[in-house]
Design a protein around this nucleic acid. Structure first.
Lengths: 175, 175
DNA sequence: CTCGGATGTTGACATTGCTCACATGGGCCG
DNA sequence: CGGCCCATGTGAGCAATGTCAACATCCGAG
């Protein structure tokens, strides 16, 4: 009987690596995702990941692409612009690692990762479509994005985050 | 003649290290600041920095503290809330490294660096004082902060940044 | 059945943050 | 003026990381 020894070939290592990276991202935040630890969690040698991703950035780009799906869906489910703002903040607060990843400096290099670019463009389009004007969309987007960062970085200490979301987003619609 | 040999004792290594770190921060962004490279630039051994800073984070905290001064002053010089918003965005776009540093994850650990905490509190107070209500301050702050991040991360591609600032900030004051 | 390319492994290198033991010499005490 | 102490700087070394090159294994096409 093969005592649960992994076969030499893993089966679906790519997905396993992404899953492991995901766990690390959620648990330890951005910097906790190291290629070697990801490989360790997947029960595989330190360099095995290079058969599936060009480098660490490519792994993270694939992860970000995966998460843009959930994010975009959460936005789309919220009907109003206000609802989208709340969904935006809730996503950021519930999954800081994912939020920081998909909006992190990686985005600047999205041109090198076509899938990432497409995924982010889709999410952005959802947001833009719900606003009255392009400028209004940018202002709303900027506001929730900035508040998310400030909250995550501890610049705005708030006891009850959900109450904060309600309070800061509840206002008469601007002309 | 002493061929420009450094004396064993540097004189003011602490300042020299901060200057070197500053150059690296401006040139290469966040990740380009390594203790060893900083020491190299200061012409000193790799571990000399530990005589002046507990660890890398302490160095960065000192650097952030230094930059909060400039930042706060830039905000204070702008009279109106709109002017402060523009100053906020201009600072972020002109010095991405400094902006990311002073608002980065380090801020969450500000409690461990009293000087940092004081410096950031002062800058925040300046911003808060210029707004009509606490909520309005948070919304305005969030907006410029978010736009700064989105611009720096390449999420909003704009050809002329100054024109963008004018356009997005120029609106009728909200009730 | 066999052989080639895809997938994993081993070993190595450079870099980084950090610790510990040691060297140096400037400034305070007598 | 002279000697000693401790702040300051040095060096070697450790563990971890990203990445590369050479090698091992095995699945599937012919």
């Amino acid at each position: 009987m093969s005592t649960s020894e992994r076969p030499y070939h893993h089966g679906d290592l790519r997905a396993a690596l992404l899953d492991a990276a995901d766990r690390l991202l959620d648990a330890g935040g951005d910097g906790a995702v190291s290629l070697r630890e990801v490989a360790r969690q997947a029960g595989v040698s330190p360099t095995a990941a290079y058969r599936h991703f060009a480098d660490k950035e490519a792994l993270l780009a694939a992860l970000a692409t995966r998460h843009y799906g959930d994010f975009g869906r959460a936005l789309a489910e919220a009907g109003s612009l206000n609802g989208m703002g709340a969904a935006y903040l809730r996503f950021a607060l519930a999954r800081p690692g994912r939020f920081r990843l998909i909006f992190g400096p990686l985005l600047a290099r999205a041109a090198m990762h076509p899938e990432l670019q497409a995924a982010s463009a889709a999410a952005f389009a959802t947001l833009r479509a719900a606003a009255a004007s392009p400028e209004a969309a940018l202002r709303a987007w900027g506001m929730v994005h900035g508040l998310a960062h400030l909250l995550l970085d501890g610049a705005i200490p708030v006891p009850d985050r959900e109450a904060f979301i309600q309070r800061v987003l509840h206002r008469e619609p601007e002309g």
